[in-house]
């Protein structure tokens, strides 16, 4: 599946179905992240239930603590 993540086009493997799968694929599933799909921000619960589709525009922001 071809999607755009943070402005960059990329192919996701077939096993990536839900947003939570994508976070695992990027190895950021243990980080605290905010995800937006096609302009709509998701709650944490929706990461599990939201299916990705071809050409989705995805924004991912992860929280860090340094300063």
């Amino acid at each position: 599946m071809g999607v755009v993540v943070n402005g960059e086009f990329m192919e996701l493997p077939e096993r990536v179905v839900f947003v939570s799968d994508m976070l695992r694929h990027f190895d950021i599933h243990e980080k605290v992240v905010v995800v937006e799909i096609n302009g709509e921000v998701l709650t944490r619960v929706e990461h599990q239930s939201t299916r990705l589709s071809e050409k989705d525009r995805i924004e991912i922001v992860h929280f860090v603590g340094g300063g």
């Binding site: 943070n6 402005g7 960059e8 905010v34 937006e36 302009g39 921000v41 709650t43 924004e59 922001v61």
Partner: peptide
């Protein structure tokens, strides 16, 4: 908006988070 960037990877991202 929540803003984030990576200056080495040349990425910039903004998310409207009001709904949260």
């Amino acid at each position: 908006k929540l803003v984030s960037f990576d200056l080495w990877k040349n990425q910039f991202s903004e998310i409207q988070v009001d709904r949260l």
